[in-house]
Design a protein around this nucleic acid. Structure first.
Length: 258
DNA sequence: ACATTGGCAGCCATGCCAAG
DNA sequence: CTTGGCATGGCTGCCAATGT
């Protein structure tokens, strides 16, 4: 049953907020569950105004807190009408008023040139799988990951998975990208990628991504063809593996495998 | 009078990052 | 590793403008 409720990151975030709220209630001598008008007002003001231990949180974070506490009610069949009460929105909007919007850090887009440079190793590969060394396999895998992610506008979460995710094979092959999700068109002018799960695919219907052949140094079709030829794997295996040396040197986020 | 369209802001599950 | 903070972005409902 629990497995059908929220999973992964969202669940752990919510649990964290819920524990923090419970601690607050204990200190204030308030009963935590179900959330009451008093306990929620007390908690929200303490979050919005800050206290000796914690600085004031952003109004949007307070909204996320509301969602987390509401999620507890939903999961436990408790009534959640209280959370719709306008009073709490007004508290948050009140906190928003005196605080100007903070500047967002500028992050420049990754360019085609960047991808070309990163995947330059694909230009010189041995002709047969038997001649692939561990290092060259590493390069092939990461270069393919770069090109496909760039060409397909793929989010990290759609493409990457954690070592942990490999433990349950059935869930892995039902939710993550595997070799069977790559199809080439007969003329090899494009490849089709099936995303079984995507952040925006809330109904879990699957999303088709078309990767057009570009023929330049960032061509995803070229990379995928070379990968399938020189690093053959079963249909239920991940499309590419992140090189161990990249994990160890922290060139890429820890514990992520493409 | 009712239907459709499009802009808009709020929602919230999920993402990344930093600190402990 | 966990926790906290907050940005992200598709979906949704609302509303006014426009169409029928």
């Amino acid at each position: 049953m629990d497995g059908l409720l929220l999973t992964g990151r969202s669940r752990s975030v919510y649990l964290s907020v819920q524990r923090s709220y419970e601690k607050h209630c204990a200190l204030q001598n308030l009963s935590a569950w179900p959330v009451s008008r008093q306990s929620l007002t007390s908690w929200l003001s303490s979050r919005l105004l800050g206290n000796a231990n914690q600085k004031a949180v952003k109004p949007d974070t307070a909204l996320a807190d509301l969602a987390a506490l509401r999620a507890y009610h939903i999961d436990n069949f408790l009534d959640d009408k209280l959370f719709d009460n306008k009073h709490f929105r007004r508290l948050i909007d009140g906190a928003r008023r005196p605080n100007p919007v903070t500047k967002v850090r500028v992050r420049n887009p990754i360019s085609r040139d960047t991808i070309t440079t990163l995947s330059a190793g694909l230009a010189a590969l041995p002709p047969r799988p038997s001649e692939m060394s561990a290092n060259i396999l590493d390069d092939l895998n990461s270069a393919t990951a770069c090109r496909v992610a760039f060409a397909g506008f793929i989010r990290l979460g759609e493409f990457a998975y954690k070592t942990d995710d490999l433990r349950t094979r059935s869930i892995f092959s039902a939710t993550k990208l595997t070799r069977s999700d790559v199809r080439f068109s007969s003329s090899l002018d494009h490849a089709q990628l099936t995303l079984k799960r995507s952040k925006t695919d809330r109904r879990h219907g699957g999303v088709q991504i078309i990767l057009a052949k570009t023929g330049d140094g960032a061509c995803p079709v070229d990379a995928l063809q070379k990968l399938l030829l020189l690093d053959p794997k079963g249909p239920r295996r991940p499309i590419v593996l992140l090189p161990q040396k990249a994990i160890q040197s922290q060139q890429l986020p820890l514990d992520l495998i493409y």
